[in-house]
């Protein structure tokens, strides 16, 4: 008996590491949402260990996909079959669960994006430009400043009777505006509701500018847990907004689906297996002195052996992840002419 084939999706974001296990029908068997706490490698390893423990009997990992801003890092550790950007991963996951969705609103820890789906493909997208105002980490910080646990933040907003207006363009302005409103004696609920409205306004005017937001609208990413923001979106768009059951790990699910598609073509997985994850992983950086760019080169080592390396502009240091034998080949760089 060969057992059940399972697929693992890993999303290493700025704030959380998400890991999911799905089967061939893309049913979700296991999901983990772990805060990065500034130590992505350790959290990822702990998460993978947890997944290993939870692995059903007679099953094997038949494919692994990574996504998120730390997708290369995750790939270096597990040797993935697919390393995909977040847009494609999120689009893939939504199209599976909600095939008639036409708009995805996604707000994560440090970036926010809008993805337009038409006829089953991603037809347009936008990401926040240079400012992280109105993303999860900003809400985190404001919740902390108001002394409200982030989990209760949204519920408080719903209790507001007269929301105050908060400047939403910039996180720094929003914060000083909030302080000012507090000093005026506005209630905490009203300020929080004002903040939710400001964030949504900023998102729609910035990320969503000029985009045709058509139903059905799906809202996902960690911030979708915040009912205050969901409500604010529904008010601003005057339409219902769907928060999928697994809104917080949709990127990881998408990566898992993409891994299944890839391995069903290639036939086999590159995944290094849970046993080889037991080792000691470490990241090391150094500055390349080859030219005045002084690129920061990152190396991932497992038990002292080089696993992957990236970071140079010219590509001369790049070493692809996934070769356990140690016969790492240096990628073809093209140093400037």
């Amino acid at each position: 008996m060969t057992g059940i084939d399972l697929y693992m999706g890993i999303d290493v974001g700025s704030v959380s590491v998400n890991i999911v296990l799905i089967d061939e029908k893309y049913n979700l068997l296991e999901k983990l949402y772990l805060r990065t706490q500034g130590r992505p490698i350790r959290i990822l390893k702990e998460g993978l260990e947890e997944i290993h423990q939870a692995l059903p009997l007679h099953s094997r990992i038949a494919g692994v996909g990574t996504t998120g801003s730390g997708r290369e890092l995750a790939n270096a550790i597990v040797s993935a079959d697919v390393v995909k950007n977040e847009i494609t991963a999120h689009g893939t996951a939504v199209l599976h669960y909600i095939p008639d969705a036409q708009t995805i609103l996604e707000i994560g820890g440090q970036d926010s994006k809008i993805i337009l789906l038409r006829n089953g493909v991603v037809s347009d997208f936008a990401m926040n430009t240079v400012c992280a105002a109105g993303t999860g980490s900003f809400l985190d910080r404001q919740a902390e400043r108001l002394g409200v646990p982030i989990q209760e933040f949204g519920a408080l907003a719903l209790r507001s009777a007269t929301p105050v207006r908060i400047a939403g363009r910039c996180a720094v302005f929003a914060e000083s505006d909030m302080i000012h409103k507090q000093q005026m004696g506005c209630s905490c609920e009203d300020i929080i509701k004002g903040l939710c409205d400001a964030l949504v306004r900023n998102y729609l005017n910035n990320v969503g500018k000029g985009k045709e937001i058509l139903p059905r609208i799906v809202f996902q990413g960690g911030v979708a847990a915040n009912v205050g923001i969901v409500k604010a979106f529904e008010e601003a768009l005057d339409q219902p907004v769907i928060v999928p059951e697994h809104f917080d790990v949709m990127g990881a699910i998408g990566a898992g689906i993409l891994a299944h598609r890839k391995t069903s073509r290639t036939g086999d997985t590159r995944f290094c297996g849970f046993n080889s994850l037991r080792g000691d992983f470490a990241a090391r950086t150094f500055e390349c002195k080859g030219c005045t760019n002084l690129c920061e080169i990152v190396e991932i080592l497992s038990d002292g052996k080089l696993r992957a390396r990236w970071g140079g502009r010219c590509g001369k240091w790049s070493v692809a992840a996934g070769d356990e034998t140690g016969s790492l080949s240096v990628a073809q760089g093209s140093p400037s002419a």
């Binding site: 801003s69 995909k84 977040e86 847009i87 493909v121 997208f125």
Partner: peptide
């Protein structure tokens, strides 16, 4: 930057 470029090409 690379994420945006990659996502665009994927699209």
């Amino acid at each position: 930057f690379d994420t945006r470029l990659e996502a665009f090409v994927d699209m």
